[in-house]
Design a binder for these strands. Structure first.
Lengths: 332, 332
DNA sequence: CTGAAAGCGCTAACAC
DNA sequence: GTGTTAGCGCTTTCAG
């Protein structure tokens, strides 16, 4: 690898220049592949010295001068969540293949913490930001725009629409899913979700279910609310109910509760919804569910952001929906 | 928030100095809380200007001068893995609470890619590195040591032992788990694992099972090998077998295979092992399993690394085991 | 108590 | 083709 046996201090461009008998400028030109007017001889000499010394330019210094850090800030609402993991996987495939690196922060879904972290990213001179916003109002993120920093939203929209958001095709896939379900089999319909208000995705999914079930009414159970578990069991006990779960964690919970209540799926209750794990087929009879293309969403976020950074263009506000896959099994 | 309506360029320390009628030096002193010899008046004035201008120092520039980037490099073998997610969660709790930020890279378990990423982190002037190594030989990481960069290993040891590694108490917890199992119930014992060779953790777990079952022999099935699925079904069919799964993904796979083969757990086969998801209770009868304290491992890694960085001391090589929890259910 | 000046490692006019 | 010079935004002697 051309590495010396022991090396303490970083070698600098100056040392390379000295050893090669040229100026820093020339070395810098070499580094930045500006060969257009450079004698093959010097070029070769510099190359040799760089290898001998195992010289690697300091990104810090380059960034300070060139205003490009090759750092991307990523703020996620919960890094331990499977959805987030897959999103990050997709991003890292795009960024790391190129020379970009991600600084990843976990906002815990808390708006104040999120603001703090966003500011830190700006302090760090990141070239762009990918954000899964904890707030639903665009105003919270206006200051990023003011800084002229490219920003792209993951999964969740903010209002009024101001940035490009990339996520699942919630409405379309839910509509397709319900086309496959024989609604007459059910006497009541329930959406189970984490609290709707702060997250556009949850609202959109709820609305899509409402639309799909119309004119039948749709109940909403928000996990964490008073007696929500009991509410599920009550509904399941009263009439044949279809439970639509807004994400994978919720689905796991619902299945657990129904199992404890000794309800048979799909004979006594129906269960469907979003499955972040792609593994509900392990559970019970196999759950008919929506599998999100999470990695591809992550990759798309990264690609779009890079393009915006490199072209210096502002991303067009709006929602880019990546199509989901419906996994038909036997839970409904 | 003290933010102006529109601001394009970052404000610099020079502008603050000008507005406050002092020199950059004094502002810098203020920023670094060197108040010892500074008149309350100037202090107040600087404070006011900083707030009015919403000035925030550039980390880039600070780092270039002070040799402290407040950046930590984290290289993980697979970022979409649940174990990794929880590790990162634990780390982020420690780092982000303080003013540290993580650059996270996914090595895909590939040694070459990993080397490349580690070098990039060095280029970026990170203050320390947390690594879940893809290779098992310490030699691969010697160059980090040569750079005087604090390094700490997550979950996996390298040989010869050269750095502090923090992970699960594999041997101890496996020994405790087997104390709870009535070995006489089984006629054969099998460890199912991803390929053993490159990862110390997998080897250690296998050895611990061998020790616990002695003098009975222990079969080893490496997933991905020729006909490994069939091997599982064959063993299960021949005699009453206990399957020990080396991690959560493997356990999911084993359960899936056994289910397809119509084997009843625990009547016909026993299943136990490590469960990264803390959710195998959703599956079948509830799986007796080992739940790793993954978040705490992540936090411990972060804490130890920070301490090493701040004290300028080298971490003592060795293995720090964080105790796991055994979840006794009914699968064995 | 405060400031001038040098410099961290690099890039980019502008000369020659 | 290549070098000189002047910074990027900050910290830190060293003087006063």
């Amino acid at each position: 690898m051309g590495k010396g046996l022991v090396m303490n201090k970083r070698v600098t461009i100056q040392e390379v220049a000295d050893q090669a008998g040229v100026s820093k400028t020339t070395v810098s030109r070499y580094l930045n592949k500006k060969y257009h007017k450079m004698s093959p001889a010097t070029k070769k000499r510099i190359k040799a010295v760089i290898e001998a010394l195992d010289y690697r330019p300091s990104r810090q210094a380059q960034a300070l001068k060139s205003k490009r850090s090759y750092l991307i800030g990523v703020v996620i609402a919960d890094i331990s969540n499977m959805y987030a993991s897959l999103l990050l996987k997709g991003m890292s495939q795009v960024f790391n293949q190129a020379k970009w690196q991600m600084i990843i922060l976990d906002s815990l879904g808390e708006v104040d913490l999120e603001s703090q972290y966003l500011e830190r990213l700006i302090d760090q001179n990141v070239d762009g930001i990918i954000l899964q916003p904890a707030a639903i109002t665009s105003e919270n993120y206006q200051f990023i725009e003011d800084m002229q920093l490219p920003l792209i939203l993951a999964d969740r929209k903010t209002y009024p629409s101001q940035w490009l958001t990339i996520g699942t095709d919630n409405e379309a896939v839910i509509s397709r899913l319900f086309d496959q379900i024989h609604l007459a089999d059910y006497q009541s319909f329930v959406v189970v979700s984490e609290v709707l208000a702060p997250v556009s995705t949850r609202q959109d999914r709820y609305q899509a279910v409402v639309t799909a079930c119309a004119p039948a009414p749709v109940h909403l159970i928000e996990v964490g609310q008073n007696n929500w578990q009991k509410a599920i069991l009550d509904l399941a006990g009263q009439q044949k109910t279809l439970f639509f779960c807004n994400n994978g964690r919720v689905m796991i919970e619902v299945l657990r509760i129904l199992k404890q209540g000794n309800f048979q799926v799909p004979q006594e209750v129906g269960v469907t919804g979003f499955d972040d794990w792609h593994m509900t087929d392990m559970i019970g009879p196999g759950i008919t569910s929506i599998e999100q293309p999470t990695e591809r969403i992550g990759a798309a976020l990264a690609e779009n952001l890079l393009q915006a950074i490199e072209s210096q263009q502002i991303l067009k506000a709006g929602y880019q929906a990546i199509p989901s896959h419906i996994s038909l099994r036997s839970s409904v």
